[in-house]
Design a protein around this nucleic acid. Sequence first.
DNA 1: GTATAAATCAAACGTTCGTTTAAGTCAAGG
DNA 2: CCTTGACTTAAACGAACGTTTGATTTATAC
Lengths: 235, 235
Amino acid sequence: MIINDKNNIEQSSNKNLSTDKTCDKILNAAEELFAEKGYNAVSVRAITAKAQCNLAAVNYHFGNKANLYKEVFTRFLTDLRENKLAAINNVMESEDATLEKLLSGFCKNFIETHSSGRFSKLHSLMQREEVTPLLPQDLFLGQFRKPVMERLAEAFKKLCPGLSVEDCFLCVESTISQMLHLCMVSQKMNNFKSPLRLLPVKFGSKDYVKKSIDHIVFFCKAGIEALNDKNRNKI
Amino acid sequence: MIINDKNNIEQSSNKNLSTDKTCDKILNAAEELFAEKGYNAVSVRAITAKAQCNLAAVNYHFGNKANLYKEVFTRFLTDLRENKLAAINNVMESEDATLEKLLSGFCKNFIETHSSGRFSKLHSLMQREEVTPLLPQDLFLGQFRKPVMERLAEAFKKLCPGLSVEDCFLCVESTISQMLHLCMVSQKMNNFKSPLRLLPVKFGSKDYVKKSIDHIVFFCKAGIEALNDKNRNKI
DNA sequence: GTATAAATCAAACGTTCGTTTAAGTCAAGG
DNA sequence: CCTTGACTTAAACGAACGTTTGATTTATAC
């Protein structure tokens, strides 16, 4: 019995996750099911049914259900972190980087990544883990949130030197919180087809998301620049 | 067997929830436990143990566990909605209402309400319900979010006539999303005593929350006024 | 005081769950 | 060919859960 094997480090960075081995079939099936329904709502039996393997295979390869969840979550967090850092670096490595380009690049990558494909469903999983943590705090906070926040705060500082380090982090929180909220609204509305209309544009529709992105970029730019100006005037 | 009895309508509006009747003891015990651990992590046995009554009492008075949860959630949402509407009205009924006073009043009431007392733990429950809905959408969205959002959007419109209705709602979302995020960070850090430091001020500490509130008020004010000015310049 | 309904109680039911066990299959190495 | 170890399989275990039952107690009304 070999649990917690890390033999798929190279594979996890690939876009196409391998599906031949039982171990990987379980990992992929668990990722889909956990993302869709959350940890408690998914039974080991459901996972092994989807992976088309025996019930005991989960305990054989991963020790127990909780450890399988940890493996799924770690693989996902690593991939998502690299995605976000790349989006920030992509703007900052350019010669003519501006605050607006940074915000636009970060937010558009955010919504695209979290709204389609593999990360779409996993976004809910991340939100669930944030509200009801099942894993050690340092995994989510230290290995994902901290590096992304630090990189974005650093970028803000470079483009707006008037900001204090503290202001940079507060602006990062302001930006990210709005994006997380938008993703949640967008995803929830897509799932439930609610007829509720709060706006002329239907809440959660594609038009709504598009307008929201533009709004958030404008809103954050104004807030950050106002903060930048305030500090510069102090001097 | 009388389930779903609404005989405590007057009592629910009182600050001191009655605790003499078995029915109310169950409701109060369930509120505390659901708020702390979520629906699935709380067993009917745990509720009846805390309420010091028999296991079958839950099914006798509320039909089943799910309906008890609905009763708990409805009572809580009604109280919280009135709290928020009062905070907005409290500023707007004044003669010298300004955008900054509105934002400050709303945000400070928000953090105070969600950080201490009865609503402190219930905030997590609301977040869980948002991420993993167990109840019909129109309950949370229609009876809570919609009225609060409409009232705040209306207030923005009054103080910043240059904003379009759509802009008002987008600014409401920007404001609320930042407050929700702050509450979550604050609460999580309080629970876990994480040593992680992202800022000079400790993440999630009282100082951090205080500075964050001031930041959010300033940040939103700048964003809203920039939007207001942009539209006025169009004319 | 007695009849009727409401409320409480201990006990059990049926189901689902995560996990374990022990037998079985298969491929590689000597 | 045989052994060894990795892997798979069917079956069962024990615990926890929501719910139900039927008897018993308490309160209410006549």
